[in-house]
């Protein structure tokens, strides 16, 4: 089933965010096995994917669109440096604009339309009541810098990676709902540098293999992977910048509220080659679901219990789960009596 955007809900303060039964049904549950191990797990993002699934299109627009765009606005107003583009990434930003506008207007014609006459483009986003005419490639004809302009209309974070010397560099992006990483600090880093804090994976040669693979992605053949962590409350902006505001949330988990407080946070990461710049788009689309909603699917609840129970201590630490991990395992155990 396709999702229609619903009125704005909050990802902070009173946390009114909720998933409808349809959103729960299409949630990208990330564990194919009972044990979780860090791996590259990259696969082709063949579109159109299954109808109604989060994999159907290049950019997934769902019922949380307005809420997420509102949340992004709040973050950028507080800290405009959550969006940046180095000067040499201008062409890549325009590539992203083209890829996003052509995809969205084709995949969601009821919400988005694009008219092109040569370089004269008119873009209409009916969900946000936007209609802009501009000259493609000329940043002075947009109401905002190109990265911010398009980033404010896409759910999920976006990074644009410049490819040179056989490596990928984090040289542009809009990052307002990260799982604890800072675009401002990581800007300009190479692929291995910005993955520096990921434990265990380095010795396994995972990054060498992944980097070679990513550098060779051609146009028209995007790839994807899922990543996950746990988040307390339905908080989108779990950035290092705002850690002072959300760090204490981890102390608020009790056996009574664990099912509603603790959310599985899944990132659908898509990598797609940009046309003119040869940059690689890295989109990180975040989905949140409370343990209670997740447990409405008995298979998920059982597997989630097994994965959590056997999670390696390094990963518990790295993902910041230490304080409440035992309560999660305990609550989930009711769905997995055999274990």
């Amino acid at each position: 089933m396709r999702m229609s955007p619903k009125p704005i809900q909050s990802f902070r303060g009173d946390f009114t965010y909720s998933n409808s039964p349809g959103a729960i049904a299409r949630f990208p549950f990330p564990f194919p096995e009972d044990e979780y191990m860090y791996s590259v797990n990259i696969e082709p993002h063949v579109t159109p994917g299954p109808e109604g699934s989060v994999f159907e299109f290049l950019f997934d627009i769902d019922e949380h669109y307005l809420s997420e765009m509102h949340e992004r606005d709040l973050v950028l107003k507080e800290n405009p440096k959550r969006c940046l583009a180095m000067p040499h990434m201008d062409q890549a930003c325009w590539d992203l604009i083209e890829r996003a506008m052509t995809s969205l207007s084709t995949d969601y014609p009821q919400h988005f339309t694009l008219q092109r006459e040569g370089d004269s483009w008119t873009w209409e986003n009916k969900l946000l009541n936007l209609k802009d005419s501009f000259t493609f490639g000329d940043s002075s004809t947009l109401p905002l810098p190109p990265m911010e302009y398009i980033g404010r209309q896409l759910q999920g974070d976006i990074a644009l990676l410049d490819q040179r010397d056989g490596d990928l560099f984090l040289d542009a992006g809009i990052v307002t709902c990260p799982a604890d990483w800072s675009l401002a600090f990581d800007a300009g880093m190479s692929f291995k540098e910005w993955h520096g804090p990921v434990p265990m994976a380095h010795g396994m040669g995972i990054f060498d293999r992944a980097l070679k693979y990513l550098c060779a992605i051609p146009q028209g053949r995007p790839v994807r992977r899922l990543n996950w962590t746990l988040t307390i409350n339905a908080r989108m902006d779990t950035s290092p910048e705002t850690y002072s505001e959300w760090g204490a949330d981890r102390l608020s988990v009790t056996p009574e509220n664990v099912a509603d407080k603790v959310h599985l946070r899944v990132e659908l990461q898509v990598l797609d080659r940009m046309s003119r710049s040869n940059a690689l788009m890295f989109s990180i689309r975040t989905y949140l679901i409370s343990l209670r909603d997740l447990s409405t699917n008995p298979e998920w609840a059982k597997r989630m219990h097994r994965v959590m129970k056997d999670l390696k201590p390094e990963l518990i630490e790295y993902k910041g789960l230490t304080r409440y991990h035992p309560m999660v395992v305990e609550w989930l155990s009711q769905f997995d009596p055999a274990n």
Partner: peptide
């Protein structure tokens, strides 16, 4: 965690 661009380490509360 080190940034060559900032020539600095990161500090987190």
């Amino acid at each position: 965690h080190y940034s060559k661009l900032h020539a600095a380490y990161v500090g987190v509360q």
